[in-house]
């Protein structure tokens, strides 16, 4: 892909190495690690980045800690000197939002799904405690920032010469997933509605997730950015592995319920054949089965 350009920005002081890739004109992506969060990687786990317009810049997910947010900002300043006007947070998960404080200044709007605030209220404290547990002193300064703009269904951000279409989805990966689409380049930022290689995570509804994937597949994207991982598959084929995994977990959990398996038994038995296909399978798959079981046990 000859039109891709890569910037390498490393800063020893920040201890996070931000490598930027221009996936489409004006769309810069940094790919996070697939390792578990640690004081070494400082929570740099998600795919994050920004979109540059003629007037200003929109950040799409500021990263997993203040250090990551600062490193992203430093890398951004090597590419553009335009001011940041929006920080879009695709959903309230710690690897995506904890870097927000790096971009806090007057005139910056923090944008999220209308359903974001409820989860933020319930989970801020446990997320902060867990960040301190994993990062130690390096967690200092990472904080939860309340959004200043909420998206109910759709919204448009004008960056000057470039508009971003924001869409708030019904319950899927979480109950407040937001995507960003730039029609001028056909670039779609999916947040964690798409995991590539990394085990998909269900923190909303597995049935809702599958429905949203069907809707997503109809969007006219040409370039797309998953929340984790990378793929060269053409759109929308890159959705297929995640879709197949979710369908398998759904079907096997439903069958386990029919056989009167308990939640503990289902967690041990469902979807184990998928283990070799995904990174971090142990850490997330059992949790997905738990979520799916509690969702389906009320079905009938």
């Amino acid at each position: 892909m000859g039109w891709l350009a890569a910037w390498f920005v490393a800063s020893a002081a920040l201890a996070v190495e931000i490598e930027l890739e221009e996936v489409a004109p004006g769309h810069f992506v940094h790919r996070g690690t697939m390792e578990e969060r640690s004081a070494e990687n400082l929570g740099d786990q998600a795919n994050i980045g920004f979109v540059v317009g003629e007037r200003c810049v929109a950040v799409v997910d500021p990263g997993g800690s203040l250090a990551v947010g600062k490193a992203l900002k430093a890398a951004m300043r090597k590419v553009t000197d335009k001011p940041v006007c929006h920080v879009v947070i695709t959903h309230f998960h710690p690897d995506h939002f904890f870097g927000a404080a790096a971009f806090r200044e007057s005139g910056v709007q923090f944008v999220a799904h209308a359903g974001y605030a409820r989860t933020m209220a319930v989970r801020s404290r446990p997320y902060l405690n867990a960040l301190r547990r994993d990062l130690g002193a390096a967690a200092d300064g990472s904080e939860v920032i309340a959004p200043t703009m909420f998206v109910d269904k759709v919204a448009t951000l004008d960056l000057g010469g470039r508009s971003l279409e924001l869409r708030a989805w019904s319950v899927a990966h979480t109950d407040h997933d937001l995507t960003v689409f730039d029609a001028s380049t056909g670039t779609l930022w999916l947040g964690d509605l798409l995991f590539v290689d990394h085990t998909p995570v269900v923190d909303g509804s597995i049935r809702g997730f599958l429905e949203v994937l069907d809707e997503l597949a109809r969007l006219p994207a040409r370039v797309y950015v998953p929340g984790h991982g990378r793929t060269d598959a053409p759109w929308p084929d890159g959705l297929i592995p995640e879709r197949d995994y979710l369908k398998l977990v759904l079907d096997e959990t439903r069958a386990a319920l029919k056989r009167k398996r308990t939640i503990e038994q289902a967690v041990d038995e469902v979807g184990t054949t998928e283990a070799s296909r995904w990174v971090n399978f142990e850490a997330f798959h059992r949790r997905n089965v738990t979520t799916t079981y509690t969702e389906l046990e009320w079905e009938e």
Binding site: P94, V122, G204, A283
Partner: peptide, 13 residues
């Protein structure tokens, strides 16, 4: 308790 994005708050209303 698991790390990552796992948290005590229920996901859905």
């Amino acid at each position: 308790a698991a790390g990552g994005c796992s948290a005590p708050g229920g996901a859905n209303r």
